[in-house]
Nucleic acid binder design. Sequence first.
DNA 1: TCTGGGGTCCTAGGACCC
DNA 2: TCTGGGGTCCTAGGACCC
Length: 404
Amino acid sequence: MSTPPLPRRIAHLDMDAFFASVELLRYPQLKGLPVVIGGSPSRNDLALRKQYGERYAEIPVEAFDRLSDYTGRGVITTATYPARTFGVGSAMGMMKAARLCPQAILLPVNFDRYRHYSRLFKSVITSIAPVMENRGVDEVYIDFTEVPGGQEDGGRVLAQRIQQAIFDATQLTCSVGVAPNKLLAKMASEFNKPNGISIVQPEDLETLIWPLSCRKINGIGPKSGAKLERLEIRTIGELAARDRFWLMEQFGKSYGSWLHEAAWGRDDRPVETHSEPVSMSRETTFERDLHAVHDKAELGQIFTWLCQQVAADLKRKGYMGRTIGIKLRYPDFRIATRDHSINHYTADPREIRHAAGQCLKRVDLTRPFRLLGVRVGNLLPNDEALHHNETQVLSHDDATLPLF
DNA sequence: TCTGGGGTCCTAGGACCC
DNA sequence: TCTGGGGTCCTAGGACCC
């Protein structure tokens, strides 16, 4: 005797203003104020660190940097809700944000701290609901289907339990959406921010989803959004009303039929608990545009450093790769990439630099550029990579360095 | 108002092999 | 001499996401 399968209940959990909230844990004096996170430590940050050490809560509000003090090319990664009321939001250039809210307090990013809290809240989740998919540092999908409480009140009971457990462990709040699939859960988690829960059932499609802008669908970005608008499709309901084959003509077979499925709230992607990295990269935007000839020495140092960083990342995480590539961004924001595959796996900084250097020779270096990046792709875990290297017959033209 | 850094996936043409 | 498809890998660019 088998019982009928339970209806799928998928949650999307999103930490509220994650980076900023983590900072407020140690700077409680900034609660309720407009605060933005972005950039690297300033001279003032370093001075405060020196003066106050670990006594973060004692730093007077007046001593922090203001957004109006910033002069670089950075963007905002997170803004507290008070800052958002000024129109400041993540991914906004800091110079623009400074005009909107010059008095906002500016804190540098602290990835190590965010990673620590990320691990913490995720381990709380998996101790309650084991089937969890990572979507970056501050959000996850969770399969509620088989978890006790996961079907109660559409998933609200379990969502509340998880929210409470995360708060008890971290003092951080999150927003949760529970729906029949990932696509709808992702939209649902936006409905009730911050510290909210929202439940979407299949029959809510027309009332809750169709009135929303197409841009609310995860996978419709600025380009597709603009194209849809040109076709006079603004809401998800308007998208759902269009013929699937017409959409396929406009957007291509694959993306067009996906658009149609998404508008109808259909998505059968599973919650994936494991994933292997495909590539690792390091890139940096210079303080000013640099030129290959005029700024040769500076660029050489940056280039070497990027290669060393990627190599260190690979080694730390236990991976090797066999496709090495570079990326340039020109002042007009156009991007050029070049890559080259070799016949063995490597995580060696000199070998990466050599191969990346060959790639650099194939790109336009007559114009200045603002960003340089180095990437290693086609990754394998160390043991598999080494096994491949031992069994692979070397062909003469692929090796970028003599082996001996 | 000029736009970070780290990723994934898709497309499309060409090489090359069967 | 001219003409096939299918499959896979490589490369460059682009859209999108957090």
